[in-house]
């Protein structure tokens, strides 16, 4: 796998195409060069674990390309996705910031390339650049909003509403493909169920109901949105 992607193909941080979408855009040139200097990268296959819940963080991961799910495994093997991450996002920063172990596991959803920065480099930047720490605070409070929304839905909504909500979350987060209808990600029925907090069986059943009612169109693992307004209505989200 590694041979297909040579080191030369991963640009320096200051030249990275994702720079403007990441929190590193606020850094000055010298700081970005410093990041490049310490950066390593890794190529992950689909389904590979980036870090495990409970392990000690050694550094920060920044997704160069691909998609990752952040999930917590329950005692009885039930899995719950708490967040998704895409190109340009950083993952594993919260454990670093609070000097804690990883609170969840990160697993790739497709073939993914991830850059890695040692802990000290990241924390030094945070200490020395107040704009960067403000940006980090903003990112955290955005994550808090999403988490608060998610827990409220999980505790109050019916499974069908949550499944439709999960699809809307996927549309918002990953966007649509060029046809302006197909969700730009391939997830298993199980993963979608794990976002909505339900079993694989229920996930399959609700998706096929939505398919039958022509709200979505399932073709393989791809999901095409046929009637977005109706999906919003099922999710009980006011447009």
């Amino acid at each position: 796998m590694k041979s297909t992607l040579e080191r030369s193909q991963i640009p320096l941080c200051e030249k990275c195409k994702n720079l403007n979408n990441s929190s590193f855009c606020i850094l000055n040139r010298t700081e970005q060069e410093r990041l490049s200097q310490y950066k390593t990268y890794n190529v992950y296959k689909k389904g590979q674990v980036v870090f495990y819940e409970g392990n000690q963080p050694q550094g920060l991961y920044c997704i160069y390309s691909g998609k990752v799910k952040i999930h917590k495994l329950g005692d009885d093997g039930k899995d719950q996705i708490v967040r998704l991450a895409k190109t340009g996002n950083v993952i594993g920063y919260r454990a670093l910031l609070s000097a804690d172990n990883y609170y969840a596991t990160a697993t790739t959803l497709e073939n993914t390339v991830i850059c890695f920065f040692p802990k000290a480099v990241y924390l030094n930047l945070l200490m020395s650049n107040s704009e960067f720490s403000m940006k980090t605070i903003k990112m955290l409070s955005g994550n808090l909003r999403i988490a608060e929304q998610m827990i409220t839905n999980m505790a109050q909504k019916q499974v069908k509403e949550r499944m439709a909500g999960a699809l809307i979350y996927l549309i918002d987060f990953f966007g649509l493909e060029e046809d302006h209808a197909t969700i730009n990600t391939v997830l298993t029925r199980q993963d979608i169920g794990n976002i909505a907090g339900t079993t694989t069986e229920t996930s399959i059943r609700v998706l096929s109901d939505l398919n039958k009612n022509r709200i979505i169109k399932l073709s393989g693992k791809k999901i095409r949105i046929q009637n977005y307004n109706e999906l919003l209505r099922v999710a009980n989200i006011s447009a």
Partner: peptide
């Protein structure tokens, strides 16, 4: 730094509860 810590703790507690609700 303190605010970062507070936000991290709040997110962790809420994400923990998200997992609890489903599990």
């Amino acid at each position: 730094r303190k605010i970062i810590k507070i936000l991290c703790d709040e997110i962790s507690s809420i994400e923990g509860r998200i997992a609890s609700v489903s599990q």
